[in-house]
Design a protein around this nucleic acid. Structure first.
Lengths: 116, 116
DNA sequence: TCAACGTATTGACAAGCGTCGATACGTTAG
DNA sequence: CTAACGTATCGACGCTTGTCAATACGTTGA
């Protein structure tokens, strides 16, 4: 029993929420975490603003961070499924991963319910 | 001069990207960071799944975390503009902040360009 | 073959974050 | 008024994360 009466509508049983599948939740978390850093946010915007893939060397030029740090951030964006990398010789080119972008677009709905 | 020739299209100057305003960037970062944690993601889903505001006591019941921790996460969601709180006596009720949800919905576009 | 270069990985360190117990604050029942 | 309760804040503690220097790896020009 409640040790105290509650307002009428305080604890009417809340609507049950189907938990996201482990995989889907982790995917979303990784995506949000990747964009939840100012540097990576701007980095993703830079990559997304290009017509085609952008060379890592150009990314390095745009930020006041050391090359290994840039590489580290790019890996996080890659692991989150937000960008893809392709190589031509020594050079690496990054581009937006349309799949990841689609997940981001649908994320508001994914937050509400499971999706087929 | 480059100490080495590059592939033809390696470093054609990348498209310039207008930096997000400090305020807009911080807002987005806070939003993404707030959702970039499994607990807060599920917490937001729980709140969003309700027809009306949900009592903190019900949120506490749904997670295997201590009440101060729940309160801490709710504050982060609040600061990110994702939820609002209203009080009736001792009880606190949380609900989705439509403004924050709208920012999330528009985030894919916000990533590309400044918005009026 | 070899030296120079672009990129990725490793290891280290400080700062930030998630969690907890303890406690403070405000409200309400008695 | 006072005791009990719901919620928020505080302080502390490991674990994670962002950054760097050093280094490894693979490619390419000579």
């Amino acid at each position: 029993m409640s040790p105290r009466s509650r307002p009428d509508d305080c604890c009417s049983p809340p609507a049950p929420v189907e938990a996201l599948s482990e995989a889907r939740r982790e995917r979303l978390v990784a995506l949000f975490r990747a964009l939840g850093d100012p540097t990576r946010l701007e980095m993703f915007r830079l990559i997304a603003a290009q017509d085609g893939p952008i060379c890592v060397c150009d990314v390095v030029e745009r930020f006041e961070l050391r090359q290994p740090t840039i590489s580290h951030h790019l890996k996080i964006l890659r692991d989150a499924g937000l960008v893809t990398v392709s190589r031509r010789g020594v050079w690496a080119y990054y581009a937006v991963d349309p799949t990841g972008l689609e997940v981001l677009r649908r994320s508001p709905d994914l937050l509400y319910e499971e999706q087929p």
